[in-house]
Design a protein around this nucleic acid. Sequence first.
DNA 1: AAGCTACTTGACCGGTCGGTAAACTGTCAA
DNA 2: TTGACAGTTTACCGACCGGTCAAGTAGCTT
Lengths: 201, 201
Amino acid sequence: MAIENTSRERLLASAKILIHSRGYADVGVQELCSHAGIKKGSFYHFFPSKQALTLAALDEMMGEIKQRVFVPAFSKEVPPLERIRRFFRLSHVMQCDGKLETGCVLGCSFGNLALELGTREEEIRTAIEGLFALVIANFRETLEEAIAIGDLPVGIDTDATAQALLAFLEGILMIAKNRNDPDVLLGQEEMALRLCRVSKD
Amino acid sequence: MAIENTSRERLLASAKILIHSRGYADVGVQELCSHAGIKKGSFYHFFPSKQALTLAALDEMMGEIKQRVFVPAFSKEVPPLERIRRFFRLSHVMQCDGKLETGCVLGCSFGNLALELGTREEEIRTAIEGLFALVIANFRETLEEAIAIGDLPVGIDTDATAQALLAFLEGILMIAKNRNDPDVLLGQEEMALRLCRVSKD
DNA sequence: AAGCTACTTGACCGGTCGGTAAACTGTCAA
DNA sequence: TTGACAGTTTACCGACCGGTCAAGTAGCTT
Protein backbone atom coordinates (compact mmCIF):
# COMPACT_ATOMS: atom_id res chain seq x y z
CA MET A 1 0.00 0.00 0.00
CA ALA A 2 3.03 2.29 0.07
CA ILE A 3 3.57 2.61 -3.65
CA GLU A 4 0.50 4.68 -4.53
CA ASN A 5 1.03 8.34 -5.18
CA THR A 6 -1.33 10.61 -3.34
CA SER A 7 -3.11 10.20 -0.04
CA ARG A 8 -6.41 10.26 -1.85
CA GLU A 9 -5.37 7.38 -4.08
CA ARG A 10 -4.11 5.39 -1.13
CA LEU A 11 -7.40 5.98 0.68
CA LEU A 12 -9.33 4.70 -2.30
CA ALA A 13 -7.09 1.66 -2.60
CA SER A 14 -7.53 0.89 1.09
CA ALA A 15 -11.28 1.28 0.87
CA LYS A 16 -11.44 -1.07 -2.09
CA ILE A 17 -9.58 -3.89 -0.44
CA LEU A 18 -10.77 -3.48 3.16
CA ILE A 19 -14.46 -2.91 2.46
CA HIS A 20 -14.50 -5.62 -0.17
CA SER A 21 -13.03 -8.14 2.21
CA ARG A 22 -14.70 -7.21 5.49
CA GLY A 23 -17.79 -5.15 4.63
CA TYR A 24 -18.81 -1.55 5.13
CA ALA A 25 -19.76 -1.55 8.79
CA ASP A 26 -16.76 -3.53 9.98
CA VAL A 27 -14.19 -1.11 8.59
CA GLY A 28 -13.98 2.24 10.37
CA VAL A 29 -12.63 5.55 9.18
CA GLN A 30 -9.69 5.19 11.56
CA GLU A 31 -8.71 1.84 10.11
CA LEU A 32 -9.02 3.09 6.56
CA CYS A 33 -6.67 5.95 7.44
CA SER A 34 -4.11 3.75 9.20
CA HIS A 35 -4.10 1.36 6.25
CA ALA A 36 -3.60 4.27 3.87
CA GLY A 37 -0.88 5.78 6.05
CA ILE A 38 -2.61 9.04 6.88
CA LYS A 39 -4.10 10.63 9.99
CA LYS A 40 -7.83 10.69 10.46
CA GLY A 41 -8.00 14.47 10.28
CA SER A 42 -6.82 14.29 6.69
CA PHE A 43 -9.60 11.95 5.67
CA TYR A 44 -12.21 14.67 5.60
CA HIS A 45 -10.01 16.86 3.44
CA PHE A 46 -10.56 14.38 0.61
CA PHE A 47 -13.98 12.93 1.28
CA PRO A 48 -16.92 14.50 3.12
CA SER A 49 -17.91 11.17 4.66
CA LYS A 50 -17.20 7.49 4.81
CA GLN A 51 -20.15 6.94 2.52
CA ALA A 52 -18.67 9.29 -0.07
CA LEU A 53 -15.38 7.38 -0.04
CA THR A 54 -17.27 4.14 -0.48
CA LEU A 55 -19.18 5.58 -3.41
CA ALA A 56 -15.94 6.75 -5.02
CA ALA A 57 -14.35 3.36 -4.40
CA LEU A 58 -17.34 1.62 -5.96
CA ASP A 59 -16.98 3.86 -8.98
CA GLU A 60 -13.32 2.96 -9.38
CA MET A 61 -14.11 -0.71 -8.99
CA MET A 62 -16.67 -0.50 -11.75
CA GLY A 63 -14.00 0.89 -14.03
CA GLU A 64 -11.61 -1.89 -13.12
CA ILE A 65 -14.23 -4.58 -13.61
CA LYS A 66 -14.94 -3.22 -17.04
CA GLN A 67 -11.28 -3.33 -17.97
CA ARG A 68 -10.39 -6.63 -16.37
CA VAL A 69 -13.56 -8.57 -17.17
CA PHE A 70 -15.95 -6.84 -19.55
CA VAL A 71 -13.38 -5.87 -22.18
CA PRO A 72 -11.70 -9.27 -22.49
CA ALA A 73 -14.91 -11.29 -22.00
CA PHE A 74 -17.31 -9.39 -24.21
CA SER A 75 -14.85 -8.94 -27.05
CA LYS A 76 -16.54 -8.85 -30.45
CA GLU A 77 -13.76 -11.04 -31.81
CA VAL A 78 -15.00 -13.97 -29.77
CA PRO A 79 -18.10 -16.05 -30.63
CA PRO A 80 -20.99 -14.89 -28.42
CA LEU A 81 -21.47 -18.04 -26.36
CA GLU A 82 -17.76 -18.21 -25.78
CA ARG A 83 -17.97 -14.72 -24.28
CA ILE A 84 -20.27 -16.00 -21.59
CA ARG A 85 -17.85 -18.82 -20.85
CA ARG A 86 -15.02 -16.33 -20.63
CA PHE A 87 -16.99 -14.13 -18.26
CA PHE A 88 -17.44 -16.95 -15.78
CA ARG A 89 -13.87 -18.17 -16.16
CA LEU A 90 -12.55 -14.67 -15.54
CA SER A 91 -14.71 -14.44 -12.45
CA HIS A 92 -13.05 -17.60 -11.22
CA VAL A 93 -9.61 -16.15 -11.85
CA MET A 94 -10.46 -12.98 -9.96
CA GLN A 95 -11.68 -14.90 -6.94
CA CYS A 96 -8.46 -16.92 -6.97
CA ASP A 97 -6.45 -13.70 -7.08
CA GLY A 98 -8.43 -12.29 -4.17
CA LYS A 99 -7.86 -15.37 -2.08
CA LEU A 100 -4.14 -15.35 -2.77
CA GLU A 101 -3.98 -11.70 -1.72
CA THR A 102 -6.17 -11.79 1.37
CA GLY A 103 -6.65 -15.42 2.32
CA CYS A 104 -10.39 -15.11 1.81
CA VAL A 105 -12.70 -15.50 -1.14
CA LEU A 106 -14.10 -12.00 -1.30
CA GLY A 107 -17.07 -12.55 -3.58
CA CYS A 108 -18.55 -9.71 -5.57
CA SER A 109 -18.00 -6.25 -4.05
CA PHE A 110 -21.28 -5.09 -5.49
CA GLY A 111 -23.25 -8.08 -4.35
CA ASN A 112 -21.75 -7.86 -0.90
CA LEU A 113 -22.67 -4.20 -0.49
CA ALA A 114 -26.05 -4.72 -2.11
CA LEU A 115 -27.04 -7.07 0.69
CA GLU A 116 -25.33 -5.14 3.49
CA LEU A 117 -26.47 -1.62 2.62
CA GLY A 118 -29.18 -2.01 -0.01
CA THR A 119 -32.04 -1.21 2.32
CA ARG A 120 -30.50 1.85 3.94
CA GLU A 121 -27.98 3.62 1.69
CA GLU A 122 -29.93 4.69 -1.34
CA GLU A 123 -27.02 6.14 -3.31
CA ILE A 124 -24.97 2.99 -2.93
CA ARG A 125 -28.00 0.87 -3.83
CA THR A 126 -28.46 2.92 -7.00
CA ALA A 127 -24.83 2.59 -7.99
CA ILE A 128 -25.03 -1.17 -7.60
CA GLU A 129 -28.26 -1.33 -9.54
CA GLY A 130 -26.48 0.52 -12.33
CA LEU A 131 -23.69 -2.00 -12.50
CA PHE A 132 -26.14 -4.88 -12.42
CA ALA A 133 -28.02 -3.29 -15.30
CA LEU A 134 -24.78 -2.97 -17.24
CA VAL A 135 -23.92 -6.63 -16.76
CA ILE A 136 -27.41 -7.62 -17.83
CA ALA A 137 -27.17 -5.38 -20.90
CA ASN A 138 -23.89 -7.01 -21.92
CA PHE A 139 -25.34 -10.47 -21.48
CA ARG A 140 -28.45 -9.56 -23.42
CA GLU A 141 -26.48 -8.15 -26.30
CA THR A 142 -24.38 -11.30 -26.36
CA LEU A 143 -27.47 -13.51 -26.35
CA GLU A 144 -29.04 -11.57 -29.18
CA GLU A 145 -25.91 -11.93 -31.21
CA ALA A 146 -25.90 -15.66 -30.52
CA ILE A 147 -29.46 -15.88 -31.76
CA ALA A 148 -28.56 -13.87 -34.85
CA ILE A 149 -25.85 -16.30 -35.88
CA GLY A 150 -27.98 -19.31 -35.07
CA ASP A 151 -26.16 -20.48 -31.92
CA LEU A 152 -29.35 -20.06 -29.91
CA PRO A 153 -33.00 -20.69 -30.83
CA VAL A 154 -35.04 -17.62 -31.68
CA GLY A 155 -37.67 -17.91 -28.95
CA ILE A 156 -35.47 -17.11 -25.96
CA ASP A 157 -36.33 -14.18 -23.72
CA THR A 158 -32.97 -12.48 -23.82
CA ASP A 159 -33.71 -9.98 -21.08
CA ALA A 160 -34.92 -12.54 -18.55
CA THR A 161 -32.10 -14.90 -19.49
CA ALA A 162 -29.49 -12.18 -19.09
CA GLN A 163 -30.86 -11.39 -15.64
CA ALA A 164 -30.79 -15.08 -14.76
CA LEU A 165 -27.14 -15.26 -15.78
CA LEU A 166 -26.29 -12.41 -13.42
CA ALA A 167 -28.33 -13.99 -10.64
CA PHE A 168 -26.59 -17.32 -11.10
CA LEU A 169 -23.18 -15.66 -11.03
CA GLU A 170 -23.95 -13.73 -7.85
CA GLY A 171 -25.34 -16.83 -6.18
CA ILE A 172 -22.33 -18.92 -7.10
CA LEU A 173 -20.05 -16.18 -5.79
CA MET A 174 -22.00 -16.20 -2.53
CA ILE A 175 -21.57 -19.95 -2.13
CA ALA A 176 -17.88 -19.71 -3.01
CA LYS A 177 -17.40 -16.97 -0.44
CA ASN A 178 -19.30 -18.87 2.21
CA ARG A 179 -17.18 -21.94 1.63
CA ASN A 180 -14.04 -19.82 1.15
CA ASP A 181 -13.34 -21.91 -1.92
CA PRO A 182 -12.82 -20.14 -5.25
CA ASP A 183 -13.04 -23.44 -7.12
CA VAL A 184 -16.78 -23.52 -6.57
CA LEU A 185 -16.71 -21.44 -9.76
CA LEU A 186 -14.80 -24.07 -11.70
CA GLY A 187 -16.82 -25.28 -14.65
CA GLN A 188 -19.82 -23.14 -13.80
CA GLU A 189 -19.70 -21.63 -17.28
CA GLU A 190 -21.34 -24.78 -18.62
CA MET A 191 -24.02 -24.59 -15.93
CA ALA A 192 -24.62 -20.98 -16.90
CA LEU A 193 -25.10 -21.96 -20.53
CA ARG A 194 -27.91 -24.27 -19.51
CA LEU A 195 -29.82 -21.11 -18.62
CA CYS A 196 -29.50 -20.24 -22.31
CA ARG A 197 -30.69 -23.74 -23.26
CA VAL A 198 -27.28 -24.74 -24.54
CA SER A 199 -26.26 -28.36 -24.06
CA LYS A 200 -22.59 -29.11 -23.55
CA ASP A 201 -22.87 -32.61 -24.93
CA MET B 1 -44.29 -7.57 19.08
CA ALA B 2 -46.24 -7.39 22.32
CA ILE B 3 -48.10 -10.68 22.06
CA GLU B 4 -45.15 -13.05 22.55
CA ASN B 5 -44.86 -14.76 25.86
CA THR B 6 -41.47 -14.54 27.44
CA SER B 7 -38.75 -11.93 27.17
CA ARG B 8 -36.51 -14.49 25.55
CA GLU B 9 -39.07 -15.23 22.87
CA ARG B 10 -39.60 -11.55 22.21
CA LEU B 11 -35.85 -11.03 21.91
CA LEU B 12 -35.62 -13.81 19.37
CA ALA B 13 -38.55 -12.42 17.40
CA SER B 14 -36.98 -8.95 17.39
CA ALA B 15 -33.64 -10.34 16.28
CA LYS B 16 -35.25 -12.24 13.44
CA ILE B 17 -37.07 -9.29 11.96
CA LEU B 18 -34.53 -6.53 12.71
CA ILE B 19 -31.38 -8.37 11.68
CA HIS B 20 -33.08 -9.85 8.64
CA SER B 21 -34.18 -6.43 7.45
CA ARG B 22 -31.20 -4.26 8.40
CA GLY B 23 -28.24 -6.56 8.89
CA TYR B 24 -26.16 -7.64 11.87
CA ALA B 25 -23.95 -4.61 12.34
CA ASP B 26 -26.68 -2.03 11.93
CA VAL B 27 -28.80 -3.38 14.77
CA GLY B 28 -27.42 -2.86 18.26
CA VAL B 29 -28.15 -4.69 21.49
CA GLN B 30 -29.94 -1.62 22.80
CA GLU B 31 -32.28 -1.50 19.84
CA LEU B 32 -33.00 -5.21 20.04
CA CYS B 33 -33.95 -4.76 23.68
CA SER B 34 -36.15 -1.71 23.07
CA HIS B 35 -37.94 -3.53 20.27
CA ALA B 36 -38.49 -6.53 22.52
CA GLY B 37 -39.65 -4.34 25.39
CA ILE B 38 -36.91 -5.22 27.86
CA LYS B 39 -34.00 -3.36 29.44
CA LYS B 40 -30.50 -3.98 28.21
CA GLY B 41 -29.39 -5.47 31.52
CA SER B 42 -31.81 -8.34 30.95
CA PHE B 43 -30.36 -9.21 27.60
CA TYR B 44 -27.35 -10.96 29.03
CA HIS B 45 -29.49 -13.05 31.29
CA PHE B 46 -30.78 -14.87 28.22
CA PHE B 47 -27.88 -14.71 25.79
CA PRO B 48 -24.16 -14.40 26.53
CA SER B 49 -23.61 -12.14 23.53
CA LYS B 50 -25.21 -10.55 20.52
CA GLN B 51 -23.61 -13.23 18.39
CA ALA B 52 -25.26 -15.95 20.48
CA LEU B 53 -28.68 -14.37 20.02
CA THR B 54 -28.06 -14.19 16.29
CA LEU B 55 -27.09 -17.83 16.21
CA ALA B 56 -30.24 -18.78 18.13
CA ALA B 57 -32.35 -16.63 15.82
CA LEU B 58 -30.76 -18.28 12.78
CA ASP B 59 -31.59 -21.65 14.26
CA GLU B 60 -35.24 -20.70 14.74
CA MET B 61 -35.42 -19.32 11.22
CA MET B 62 -34.13 -22.60 9.85
CA GLY B 63 -36.95 -24.37 11.62
CA GLU B 64 -39.49 -21.95 10.20
CA ILE B 65 -38.09 -22.23 6.70
CA LYS B 66 -38.37 -25.97 6.90
CA GLN B 67 -42.00 -25.76 7.96
CA ARG B 68 -43.11 -22.96 5.69
CA VAL B 69 -41.12 -23.91 2.57
CA PHE B 70 -39.43 -27.27 2.71
CA VAL B 71 -42.40 -29.28 3.96
CA PRO B 72 -44.95 -27.94 1.46
CA ALA B 73 -42.51 -27.71 -1.46
CA PHE B 74 -40.67 -31.01 -1.14
CA SER B 75 -43.79 -33.04 -0.43
CA LYS B 76 -43.56 -36.57 -1.74
CA GLU B 77 -47.12 -36.30 -2.97
CA VAL B 78 -46.07 -33.81 -5.63
CA PRO B 79 -44.23 -34.74 -8.84
CA PRO B 80 -40.52 -33.94 -8.41
CA LEU B 81 -40.19 -31.16 -10.97
CA GLU B 82 -43.32 -29.55 -9.59
CA ARG B 83 -41.60 -29.44 -6.19
CA ILE B 84 -38.92 -27.23 -7.61
CA ARG B 85 -41.54 -24.93 -9.07
CA ARG B 86 -43.28 -24.80 -5.72
CA PHE B 87 -40.05 -23.95 -3.96
CA PHE B 88 -39.50 -20.89 -6.11
CA ARG B 89 -43.15 -19.82 -5.95
CA LEU B 90 -43.11 -20.10 -2.17
CA SER B 91 -39.96 -17.98 -2.08
CA HIS B 92 -41.85 -15.35 -4.03
CA VAL B 93 -44.73 -15.47 -1.56
CA MET B 94 -42.38 -15.06 1.38
CA GLN B 95 -40.70 -12.03 -0.14
CA CYS B 96 -44.13 -10.48 -0.75
CA ASP B 97 -45.04 -11.11 2.88
CA GLY B 98 -41.82 -9.51 4.06
CA LYS B 99 -42.38 -6.44 1.96
CA LEU B 100 -45.93 -6.04 3.24
CA GLU B 101 -44.67 -6.27 6.81
CA THR B 102 -41.60 -4.07 6.59
CA GLY B 103 -41.82 -2.12 3.34
CA CYS B 104 -38.61 -3.71 2.11
CA VAL B 105 -37.78 -6.88 0.23
CA LEU B 106 -35.64 -8.59 2.82
CA GLY B 107 -34.01 -11.25 0.69
CA CYS B 108 -32.67 -14.43 2.25
CA SER B 109 -31.62 -14.08 5.89
CA PHE B 110 -28.94 -16.68 5.40
CA GLY B 111 -27.60 -15.19 2.21
CA ASN B 112 -27.57 -11.73 3.75
CA LEU B 113 -25.60 -12.86 6.80
CA ALA B 114 -23.36 -15.08 4.70
CA LEU B 115 -22.07 -12.05 2.84
CA GLU B 116 -21.99 -9.72 5.83
CA LEU B 117 -20.35 -12.00 8.39
CA GLY B 118 -19.07 -14.99 6.43
CA THR B 119 -15.43 -13.96 6.60
CA ARG B 120 -15.33 -13.11 10.30
CA GLU B 121 -17.94 -15.03 12.31
CA GLU B 122 -17.03 -18.66 11.87
CA GLU B 123 -19.97 -20.11 13.82
CA ILE B 124 -22.51 -18.14 11.84
CA ARG B 125 -20.74 -19.08 8.62
CA THR B 126 -20.96 -22.73 9.57
CA ALA B 127 -24.65 -22.51 10.43
CA ILE B 128 -25.36 -20.96 7.04
CA GLU B 129 -23.27 -23.54 5.26
CA GLY B 130 -25.38 -26.16 6.99
CA LEU B 131 -28.61 -24.69 5.71
CA PHE B 132 -27.20 -24.34 2.22
CA ALA B 133 -26.18 -27.98 2.33
CA LEU B 134 -29.68 -28.94 3.39
CA VAL B 135 -31.28 -27.03 0.52
CA ILE B 136 -28.87 -28.64 -1.91
CA ALA B 137 -29.61 -32.09 -0.49
CA ASN B 138 -33.35 -31.56 -0.95
CA PHE B 139 -32.84 -30.38 -4.51
CA ARG B 140 -30.57 -33.30 -5.29
CA GLU B 141 -33.02 -35.83 -3.93
CA THR B 142 -35.76 -34.24 -5.99
CA LEU B 143 -33.65 -34.34 -9.13
CA GLU B 144 -32.77 -37.99 -8.59
CA GLU B 145 -36.41 -38.83 -8.21
CA ALA B 146 -37.20 -36.93 -11.40
CA ILE B 147 -34.57 -38.99 -13.21
CA ALA B 148 -35.97 -42.19 -11.73
CA ILE B 149 -39.44 -41.54 -13.13
CA GLY B 150 -38.08 -40.38 -16.46
CA ASP B 151 -38.81 -36.67 -16.15
CA LEU B 152 -35.12 -35.87 -16.51
CA PRO B 153 -32.42 -37.51 -18.64
CA VAL B 154 -30.07 -39.87 -16.83
CA GLY B 155 -26.83 -38.04 -17.48
CA ILE B 156 -27.41 -35.01 -15.29
CA ASP B 157 -24.99 -34.19 -12.47
CA THR B 158 -27.55 -33.93 -9.70
CA ASP B 159 -25.18 -32.52 -7.12
CA ALA B 160 -23.86 -29.73 -9.33
CA THR B 161 -27.35 -28.98 -10.61
CA ALA B 162 -28.76 -28.81 -7.09
CA GLN B 163 -26.03 -26.35 -6.13
CA ALA B 164 -26.79 -24.30 -9.22
CA LEU B 165 -30.45 -24.14 -8.24
CA LEU B 166 -29.53 -22.74 -4.84
CA ALA B 167 -27.12 -20.27 -6.40
CA PHE B 168 -29.75 -19.08 -8.84
CA LEU B 169 -32.27 -18.63 -6.05
CA GLU B 170 -29.85 -16.64 -3.91
CA GLY B 171 -28.87 -14.47 -6.84
CA ILE B 172 -32.45 -13.75 -7.79
CA LEU B 173 -33.22 -12.87 -4.18
CA MET B 174 -30.27 -10.47 -4.21
CA ILE B 175 -31.54 -8.73 -7.32
CA ALA B 176 -35.08 -8.58 -5.92
CA LYS B 177 -33.77 -7.05 -2.70
CA ASN B 178 -31.62 -4.55 -4.54
CA ARG B 179 -34.58 -3.45 -6.63
CA ASN B 180 -36.94 -3.74 -3.64
CA ASP B 181 -39.28 -5.61 -5.95
CA PRO B 182 -40.51 -9.06 -4.90
CA ASP B 183 -41.92 -9.68 -8.36
CA VAL B 184 -38.44 -10.21 -9.71
CA LEU B 185 -39.11 -13.74 -8.53
CA LEU B 186 -42.26 -14.09 -10.61
CA GLY B 187 -41.93 -16.89 -13.12
CA GLN B 188 -38.35 -17.68 -12.13
CA GLU B 189 -39.35 -21.29 -11.48
CA GLU B 190 -39.27 -21.87 -15.24
CA MET B 191 -35.85 -20.27 -15.50
CA ALA B 192 -34.68 -22.53 -12.67
CA LEU B 193 -35.90 -25.58 -14.54
CA ARG B 194 -33.67 -24.66 -17.44
CA LEU B 195 -30.77 -25.46 -15.12
CA CYS B 196 -32.21 -28.98 -15.04
CA ARG B 197 -32.45 -28.99 -18.85
CA VAL B 198 -36.23 -28.85 -18.75
CA SER B 199 -37.97 -26.91 -21.51
CA LYS B 200 -41.20 -25.19 -20.71
CA ASP B 201 -42.45 -25.33 -24.28
C1' DA C 1 -40.65 -17.30 57.60
C1' DA C 2 -36.68 -18.50 55.20
C1' DG C 3 -34.29 -19.41 51.23
C1' DC C 4 -33.68 -20.37 46.49
C1' DT C 5 -34.21 -19.32 41.75
C1' DA C 6 -35.61 -16.78 37.68
C1' DC C 7 -35.88 -12.59 36.18
C1' DT C 8 -35.50 -7.40 36.03
C1' DT C 9 -33.42 -3.03 36.54
C1' DG C 10 -30.41 1.06 36.12
C1' DA C 11 -25.95 2.63 36.60
C1' DC C 12 -21.72 2.01 34.73
C1' DC C 13 -17.34 0.33 32.02
C1' DG C 14 -13.65 1.20 28.45
C1' DG C 15 -13.54 1.66 23.80
C1' DT C 16 -14.81 3.03 19.29
C1' DC C 17 -17.81 5.33 16.12
C1' DG C 18 -18.21 9.15 12.35
C1' DG C 19 -17.16 13.70 12.21
C1' DT C 20 -15.29 18.67 13.57
C1' DA C 21 -12.11 22.49 14.41
C1' DA C 22 -8.04 24.92 14.50
C1' DA C 23 -3.35 25.28 14.12
C1' DC C 24 0.45 24.15 11.30
C1' DT C 25 3.56 22.95 7.13
C1' DG C 26 5.27 23.28 2.66
C1' DT C 27 4.83 25.07 -2.10
C1' DC C 28 4.17 28.22 -5.52
C1' DA C 29 2.62 32.47 -7.68
C1' DA C 30 2.23 37.52 -7.63
C1' DT D 1 7.84 39.28 0.93
C1' DT D 2 3.53 38.31 1.10
C1' DG D 3 -0.48 35.73 0.59
C1' DA D 4 -3.11 32.01 -0.98
C1' DC D 5 -3.81 27.31 -0.84
C1' DA D 6 -3.45 22.14 -0.57
C1' DG D 7 -2.41 19.07 2.60
C1' DT D 8 -1.28 17.46 7.33
C1' DT D 9 -1.64 16.98 12.20
C1' DT D 10 -3.42 16.87 16.91
C1' DA D 11 -6.89 17.28 19.97
C1' DC D 12 -11.44 16.90 20.63
C1' DC D 13 -16.78 16.16 20.25
C1' DG D 14 -21.13 13.71 21.61
C1' DA D 15 -23.10 9.43 20.70
C1' DC D 16 -23.15 4.88 20.74
C1' DC D 17 -21.02 0.21 20.98
C1' DG D 18 -21.05 -4.59 23.38
C1' DG D 19 -20.80 -6.00 27.82
C1' DT D 20 -20.60 -5.98 33.29
C1' DC D 21 -22.29 -5.61 37.80
C1' DA D 22 -24.75 -5.37 42.12
C1' DA D 23 -28.97 -4.65 43.91
C1' DG D 24 -33.69 -5.58 43.81
C1' DT D 25 -38.19 -8.13 42.97
C1' DA D 26 -41.42 -11.64 42.39
C1' DG D 27 -42.84 -16.45 42.76
C1' DC D 28 -42.21 -21.05 44.40
C1' DT D 29 -40.54 -24.62 47.79
C1' DT D 30 -39.51 -26.12 52.12
